[in-house]
Design a protein around this nucleic acid. Structure first.
Lengths: 391, 391
DNA sequence: TTGTATGCGTTATCAA
DNA sequence: TTGATAACGCATACAA
């Protein structure tokens, strides 16, 4: 049997209360006593029982992370960011993968994390109103990535800006028939990201005087395979698009695969732009909208730390900027009648004229490979792009 | 304040003991009583306190997963496999990322998972002997991926076979100068995977009468960037290799990037074969040694379930097969004197003549893209490749 | 600065 | 089948 706090107390010839205080580094313990306790604990190789501790104190020292996938690049990256911050603060990470619909359902039916975690981090999960309420009713701080939930802390990118930049980039290259491979639009629950991006897509088209065509939107559900099918669908249209905006790199990868399989090439036949800047996007030379993924995880964890320490009363929300990364899969539209890319010179790729000009593109085949990107680029973006709004 | 078991007992007019039994579905409770208790719990929206429960029962209902990276494809994939079977058995997953050296050290100094988990799953972690001992001394079942640890359950691939197959594939294509981009060889601790693979590499070379050259081995540490540097180093040799075996797809990706940046192409200038069959390997047309990644996670979790249920007394070990997937980055060696690929016709790609012939390769540029692979292929491999050895 | 005593919410043992 | 009650191992208010 493992040694308990009583054994340590006996050996150090003090009370269990003193042992508890000494071991946790509380102030009101004399140095000699603390030393004695520490040594006794060491000699007995005493390990605290987290459960007894939690039961007595009410704190669990663990944070729940709820997400729809562990095995996708985006989520594992965010998870890594969360982990680094939590670990540095001696908090444990309880992982809850709700990918399976039945698991999702059961989770909200039984709330297994209730009383089990000090706080919750929820990643990009489509939640019904009732489900959001259930989370809030756990009475612990909740930080949500992607979706805005009343009463919860919040981190996200500016999806409207990112999507706008992507579509404008294509328009500036002279494209007029622009398809979009969307995420799960059909989901009636509150995962707003795809909706916001799709709305931006339509707005930019309208802004450029391009009529909207429902057929040019193909759902892809964020996966490689689904992206591939979506591209196949777009290419089978009577008048297929000359450029496609996929709202995730994974779907863009699938789209590129379809192109290859059909003997087509990007950007010669179809331009493709993704979203995320996945770790292999550079290898595939994919033009994309980059977002700071790990950083968002860190921010979420920091929000939780703030909430737990009582540093800030009200839940805050942070919006981090995206960035256009021009690589080799987008290029000038081929001749398509009298219009050229010069017809829309007035549209900047970014919504606002920020102080970080987009890097020059490599239309068509880039003569030289793109230079390696500086991983710290985000940090140097002007402040107005990282706005923190207390609510 | 949340309702406790006492509240439920009062409302159902029974003792707390009966509530406990009824809620856990134990047999010795009459149906009417159980109904009454269930309803009372429902009405109070009672949620059990996991900590109190653990404290009283000694079981925690959670499994610790210790790994060196969460954000790499391989580990997130394994994690996904673990999660699926754990979740199906109502076990929680406590994630411990020991990527940082300081975190690793602290972990073994303080053993924070002691008394906190019912079992442990350790993924591909370089462990010193003392560290392995520390894990075993936690007195809970431990399942280890990759490294064999006495007293622990064990899942791995046949690394010797996989590496042998890779190198033979290159030799069969006529290559004689074959480089290897290795993982962390310098690590003095017990992560044997890279060592086994490197040994296989040398053996196959010897077997083919090719002299060993230390310079042809470049360490890459399993990452894209390191793989890129390693390839650069190999190419800067006075007599660079015509083919390279990277022991992870990520390193192979980096190698391909270096080739592209230097204006070279695979397989025209250098053949490249990877290891893992990463999700984007197909997109990059990378020839590789596939291993069933998620499946290994599932196996680890099942071993833990077995151990916990007492189904099998002794720790078992499972070895799962690898599979050569020929794509477009490996091709016939260019003329190199009098030798041709026919000089070594007798070497099968696989060590043993199993019943699953390798698919035909596409030397040089494949005219048509490779057909999609069937994800279930592993299951159809002959049994002798999945051997379970009780120890 | 230290000790005493109580509570935390269950499970499990024993008796009824 | 059910109930009373003693662990489980620690934190903390209060007293000294």
């Amino acid at each position: 049997m493992a040694a308990s706090i009583i054994d340590v107390a006996k050996r150090a010839k003090v009370s269990t209360a003193t042992v508890s205080r000494a071991l946790r580094g509380l102030p009101n313990v004399s140095e000699v006593t603390r030393e004695r306790v520490l040594r006794a604990a060491e000699e007995l190789s005493y390990a605290i029982s987290p459960h007894a501790s939690s039961l007595a104190s009410g704190r669990t020292g663990t944070i729940g992370v709820v997400l729809p996938f562990v095995n996708r690049w985006f989520y594992s990256q965010v998870l890594s960011g969360i982990d680094s911050v939590l670990r540095a603060n001696d908090l444990d990470l309880l992982l809850y993968n709700l990918g399976d619909a039945r698991v999702h359902e059961r989770f909200f039916a039984r709330m297994p994390l209730r009383r089990r975690v000090d706080a919750l981090i929820v990643l990009n999960l489509p939640l019904s109103a009732a489900e959001s309420d259930a989370l809030v009713s756990m009475e612990v701080p909740v930080a949500v990535l992607g979706t805005r939930v009343p009463g919860c802390w919040h981190v996200s990118i500016d999806n409207a800006q990112g999507a706008t930049t992507a579509v404008r980039h294509l328009i500036n290259l002279g494209h007029r028939r622009i398809g979009m491979i969307t995420g799960a639009l059909g989901d009636p629950r509150g995962f707003t990201t795809p909706i916001v991006r799709e709305h931006a897509y339509r707005s930019v088209l309208a802004e450029a005087g391009i009529p909207y065509e429902p057929d040019l939107e193909a759902p892809g559900n964020f996966g490689i395979e689904e992206g591939a099918s979506a591209m196949a669908r777009l290419l089978s249209l009577p008048d297929p698009p000359t450029a496609v905006f996929a709202e995730s790199d994974l779907m863009a990868f699938g789209a590129l695969r379809t192109l290859t399989r059909m003997g087509l090439r990007a950007p010669d036949d179809v331009s493709v732009i993704g979203f995320d800047d996945h770790e292999t996007a550079e290898l595939l030379n994919l033009t994309t909208i980059a977002q700071p993924v790990t950083h968002q995880g860190e921010l979420l964890a920091r929000q939780i730390l703030d909430a737990l320490s009582g540093a800030s009363e009200e839940p805050a929300e942070v919006v981090v900027p995206t960035r256009l990364v021009v690589r080799g899969t987008t290029g000038a539209a081929r001749v398509a009648g009298p219009r050229t890319s010069r017809d829309h010179p007035g549209l900047p790729d970014r919504p606002e004229g920020a102080g970080h000009p987009d890097r020059p593109g490599h239309p068509g085949r880039a003569a030289e490979p793109p230079a390696p990107r500086d991983g710290t680029a985000y940090d140097r973006l002007p402040d107005q792009h990282t706005r923190t709004t207390a609510r």
